[in-house]
Design a protein around this nucleic acid. Structure first.
Lengths: 202, 202
DNA sequence: GTCTATAGTGTGATAGAC
DNA sequence: GTCTATCACACTATAGAC
């Protein structure tokens, strides 16, 4: 059990250092210092620095999916504007309250694109995120599985992208962007529901 | 003029190496090799490696904005679904045909978030992209300046995010996501226009 | 303006004691 | 399983010749 304890400390430290200092400053030495272990131990648990970061991404993704379990609805009625807004408020406020999360995500995306050894790991975790998000859209938005599945990657992109713009630019109108996003989602849901209704009258 | 020639060669090489090999492999040595100049010359033109990359971002952003000059419409009518689809086809196919562009963008975003010395540069170029995109939305989508300005950061996010997912995952349904995006935009435009029309009848 | 050469630093990985 | 110690390497930045 101590085995996993030390390993977990390393992963937590890697998470923290990567999010705060960025990839090039996140040396194994610094991670070991933060974790309170010997630098050599990192090589014992992980085949390379990037593989350690791949594991960080996997864990981060798990937490992300858990955090998405907001507001599961059983309601069969289409969501009101308020319901959409308050559901969106979860990712919205997360980026505001925890900016290092956003930084970490971008470090990991860049890492996944550049290092073939970790890109598989990134692919799997992104797919997992999409699936979790699709389930939630299906539940909250009262959309078909197909439409929910197609909407998920769009929302995933927007959450990250707006977080980035907010983080880079204090003057960025983050609230306005989320309001517009809510309006778009609402309009889309109404439009596909009208379509469905129209078909009933054929 | 030879002065700018060498400088440009360095920037072009930095672009290429950063996009292909990623930040940690993009050493000044490698960039100099690709540019065909002495490694020491990089220090003459740029105060640091990251500042060179900041300049790369600025140029990339210029090209991005130019490439967005697709389909300027003078039409005052709301766009049809076909018009929206074909406008979206520009960013969509760009990510497909030029994947290293997407990789570069993510490297630069990560760099901007981690290095305070370049974050200002990233902020400015992102703001510039938003403004260009907003103008185009106003023209193509026939939306008010305010709504166009709020929609721009969302589309900016989606273009990047879908490109990332496409690049990471061969099985990702890129086409389906863009179709849904087009439907969302169409529904949104119709919904705000209905609203506008309703107001006319007050 | 461009080059060569190098100083100085810090890295990731690993061998071997415990 | 964890540590210490160290290796061999690559890097950035810069000084100085031309």
């Amino acid at each position: 059990m101590t085995e996993h304890d030390r390993q977990k400390k390393i992963i937590d430290a890697a998470y923290q250092v990567l999010a705060e200092k960025g990839y090039d400053q996140a040396s194994t030495k610094e991670i070991a210092r933060v974790a309170g272990v010997a630098q050599g131990l990192i090589g014992y648990y992980f085949s390379s620095k990037d593989m350690l970061f791949a594991e960080v991404f996997r864990r981060e993704s798990e937490k992300y999916c858990e955090s998405l379990s907001f507001m599961k609805r059983k309601d069969e009625a289409p969501p009101t504007g308020d319901i959409i807004q308050s559901a969106l408020n979860v990712p919205k406020s997360r980026a505001e309250e925890n900016p290092s999360w956003v930084k970490l995500r971008y470090e990991l995306y860049a890492l996944g694109l550049r290092n073939p050894a970790v890109s598989g790991s990134i692919r799997d975790t992104l797919a997992s995120k999409r699936n979790h998000l699709a389930e939630l859209i299906e539940s909250v938005g009262n959309l078909s599985p197909e439409r929910s599945k197609a909407l998920a990657p769009i929302l995933l992109s927007v959450f990250d992208g707006l977080g980035l713009q907010k983080l880079c630019d204090e003057d960025f109108d983050y609230d306005g962007a989320y309001d517009t996003l809510a309006a778009m989602i609402g309009a889309y849901i109404r439009s596909v529901q009208t379509e469905g209704t129209a078909r009933l009258h054929d």
